[in-house]
């Protein structure tokens, strides 16, 4: 059974959505100091409305919108530099740069804090929250509706495979997280969630080896050496990868609960299709013939 719905192409959407007029009460100068609010603001703000995004937005390891971020001034989340940009509104995360947020509020600058999304429903909701803060409700509603439709269309009902996230220091992602929901949506059972990990946590390498996941989702090492990342080249983990049907790398698309998470979802969908196509019974299906090309 193939769930082969067309999932919307984000770049196309970005191009389509660039022309809606800003409302009268919309803040004129917006500064974002958080990677995830950067993304939402770049998608939703009217031309000229967003003044600056955080420095992380131009780092390819964590940001999916490096090219777009090049069009904005860079800030480092310091109260002083943000204040000197004379913003009418600052967008921030709810757990980072708390001292900066307090200071900006004391200086009389309105700050909207957006909590990190722990589910796809929350991710959709945040599009609306940021849209409202920017006075771009209409455009936000358009994005949110498309986002919801794509999520529904991305669900895979076929056979379920086991999968695990494995990051430096043996860090993994368990139940109650956005990443776990992405796995569940695309037809995978998260080994860490089964092992009782809630939120983020450590899965000892031994237990990962014993669980033998069919898909391993790991991360690209950063430049420069670290002992934390050495575990990713451990011979036992390599053997797990060799036995698994597919290895994926979590990249910037997994970092934020924004419409960009659709790219991560599509990556998982492709992994699911690849595993399906290992079953000789599926070799003649249209999807596997497409995949083989």
């Amino acid at each position: 059974m193939w769930a082969c719905a067309k999932v919307f192409d984000l770049t196309l959407v970005l191009a389509l959505a660039s022309a809606a007029p800003a409302l009268a009460e919309a803040p004129g100068r917006v500064v974002s100091i958080n990677l995830c609010t950067d993304q939402l603001a770049m998608m939703l703000a009217a031309p000229g409305q967003l003044v600056s995004v955080s420095d992380l937005a131009s780092e390819p390891q964590s940001s999916s919108m490096v090219r777009q971020a090049a069009g904005y001034a860079v800030n480092h989340g310091q109260a002083e530099e943000v204040f000197l940009m004379h913003p009418d509104l600052v967008l921030a995360g709810s757990y980072t740069a708390l001292a900066t947020v307090d200071m900006l509020r004391r200086l009389g600058i309105p700050v909207v804090q957006v909590p990190p999304a722990n589910s796809l429903a929350e991710a959709v909701e945040q599009v609306r929250i940021v849209g409202a803060a920017l006075g771009q409700e209409e455009r936000a509603e358009w994005f949110a509706t498309r986002f919801e439709t794509s999520i529904r269309a991305a669900r895979i009902a076929g056979p379920r495979y086991s999968a695990a996230f494995y990051h430096p220091n043996g860090y993994t992602t368990g139940s109650g997280t956005l990443a776990d929901e992405v796995m569940g949506l695309t037809g995978f059972d998260n080994i860490a969630a089964t092992a009782g990990v809630t939120g983020g946590g450590v899965l000892p390498l031994e237990r990962l080896v014993m669980a033998a996941p069919e898909v391993l989702v790991t991360s690209e090492p950063y430049p420069g050496a670290s002992r934390a990342e050495e575990v990713l080249t451990h011979p036992a983990l390599r053997a797990v990868q060799d036995n698994a049907g597919a290895t994926l790398h979590t990249d910037a698309d997994w970092v934020c609960g924004t419409p960009l998470i659709m790219r991560a979802i599509n990556g998982m969908r492709r992994a699911h299709i690849r595993l399906d196509c290992k079953d000789p019974g599926n070799w003649n299906s249209k999807m596997c013939r497409l995949d083989a090309q």
């Binding site: 390498l205 430049p223 420069g224 050496a225 934390a228």
Partner: peptide, 24 residues
């Protein structure tokens, strides 16, 4: 270091650990 994990490793170098070592 340009690696964000490197700074967290100060504890390892000060306290030591045998976790996830290999035959290499």
């Amino acid at each position: 270091s340009s690696n964000p994990f490197a700074a967290m490793e100060i504890v390892f170098w000060m306290m030591g650990s045998l976790a996830d070592r290999s035959m290499q």
